[in-house]
Design a protein around this nucleic acid. Sequence first.
DNA 1: TAGATTGTTAATCGATTAACAATC
DNA 2: TAGATTGTTAATCGATTAACAATC
Lengths: 209, 209
Amino acid sequence: MINSIPEPAIKRLSALYQLLCRLEVSEVNAISSREIGDRLDISAHTVRKDISYLRESQTSGARYTVLKLKELIARSLNFATSRKACVVGLGKIGTAIINYSRFSSYGFDIVAGFDSNVNIVETLPAETDLFPSYMIPEIVKEREIELAILAVPFEAAQLCVDRLVKGGIKGIVNFSSALLTTDKNIVITDVDVTKELRVLSAMISLGSK
Amino acid sequence: MINSIPEPAIKRLSALYQLLCRLEVSEVNAISSREIGDRLDISAHTVRKDISYLRESQTSGARYTVLKLKELIARSLNFATSRKACVVGLGKIGTAIINYSRFSSYGFDIVAGFDSNVNIVETLPAETDLFPSYMIPEIVKEREIELAILAVPFEAAQLCVDRLVKGGIKGIVNFSSALLTTDKNIVITDVDVTKELRVLSAMISLGSK
DNA sequence: TAGATTGTTAATCGATTAACAATC
DNA sequence: TAGATTGTTAATCGATTAACAATC
């Protein structure tokens, strides 16, 4: 029933969740669909429509209660239960991510880091357990890691993905510029600065937006 | 005429461009829409449709010549002329990006780095000219910088954006987790690991894909 | 030539926008 | 109560998929 939320709506709802967390900190109690739309740069219609995907049909003419709406999204999109994650590749990006302490407060526990260079694994100062890359399948399975942040060089990316999949990974955030191939049931998001710059560049040139 | 390429198509064409660059290096000469589709995880229909947005109507039954198609995309999306970019915020992420040397070979010249901490600006070893943040408007204007990579902490983000806009920036890749507000004619892409993890998490839970 | 493949028009599918009754 | 706002159905808009003639 709740199953069929369109992917664009999931993305917007994730952004909305983030906004609600911020509002909660600033002690804002209620917000209208219009205000949300202004902040997130989408229409108020879309905001209400997106929220309606989650609802168990209870009509109301009052503005959204920040806390309640946050809870509703958390429940519907499963943000309440925390997930285990790992970082693969401990270069500059990987190290920056693994030392970014705020993940756990957002429901993501980084429980392992991997690098092919044993030297790095042994000497890097980090609060997280570090392992050599060949141990990925073993550790991912053992610690029930569901998500991976991949920050290895281009050439090493596919091998790491295969190892992660072998361990039973469910989703990957890909910081390498490699084009990865996997089973359809593993979700991958690509984060590629060069690609983002290109898209921006094209949009500037074409004036499309 | 060429103006009206839908945004999803622009994104896919940027990915295709990247694929073609790779194929060129591996000395592949020709490729079919089906093969492209397999690699990019989209349908062959979509590939052909996307390419048709660029074409000056010249029918052909032969597979795409890698080099020609690459050139066509470069010409249509303006990837040929290089653009100037800057990095704002020289923490771990910012430093990693500014020292990533390959941007220039992709048509992006990073011509300045900024940080609010004068100490960092003076001592950081980098090949790029570094400046204190208050000089952003001046330098952006002077050097005709069109793109910015924003990697400052959450709290500082909006101030930096305002300064960039003052200098006449056209596009921003936002690595901070802040929700930025600006004129409609400035293009912003958000790169937020936490948000990506959330979206992955939701998609895993809902099984939607 | 025959099989394969493109380029593009038409058909379908899905998301966004509009509208409005129900509610605060 | 009256003005504002939600939740949801219906209408619109746009992108993806299908189909097929033109071409290699």
